[in-house]
Design a protein around this nucleic acid. Structure first.
Length: 155
DNA sequence: GCCAACGTTGGC
DNA sequence: GCCAACGTTGGC
């Protein structure tokens, strides 16, 4: 059995926060509209993988908790919904272009791990989320970094 | 609100 | 295929 991979996925808490995920228990992670992020979703993300939930455009920006992939990639239906903010006129039934996964709530950190705290931790300097200009909404995280962040989230 | 960084679009 | 213009992300 292959070990689960680890990821970081960004969300704006005003749109969908760790509390929303805790309340829902499980959710469809719709709205990924970047090809590289989509390729991670489609080609590499597997059921059982662990995900750091990152609050972007928050004050302060932070990792807020952990989720688990419970369904691997399938077409994102919001591409065909003309009233959805995620509607994509280039997508069709036969070629939906964009994919999504389902996530289940795993844990909310007792203490959110702020971007500032990540930057100050010497063992995390290689984390992609800390790289300059890194805007991907989905990125891989090493198991070591994942555990490091998770332990920082415990009080 | 500013702006750096990066992605996408479209004319050529 | 080049590249300028434009749009988006996201920290500050």
């Amino acid at each position: 059995m292959k070990k689960p991979a680890c990821w970081l996925m960004k969300t704006e808490p005003e749109t969908y926060s760790i509390d929303d995920l805790a309340r829902d228990g499980r959710t469809c992670w719709e709205g990924v509209r970047n090809y590289q992020a989509r390729n991670y979703l489609r080609d590499e993300m597997k059921v059982g993988d662990l995900v750091l939930i990152y609050h972007s455009n928050a004050s302060p920006p932070c990792v807020a908790g952990v989720a688990r992939v419970v369904r691997s990639a399938y077409p994102d239906p919001t591409v065909l919904d003309r009233r959805s903010p995620y509607h994509d006129p280039k997508a069709t039934e036969d070629n939906p272009i964009w994919m999504m996964v389902d996530l289940a709530f795993e844990e909310k950190f007792a203490q959110f791990v702020t971007l500032d705290a990540l930057k100050k931790d010497k063992s995390l300097t290689d984390m992609l989320v800390l790289k300059r200009g890194q805007r991907l909404s989905i990125m891989p995280v090493s198991a070591t970094h994942f555990e490091g962040v998770r332990s920082m989230g415990k009080r």
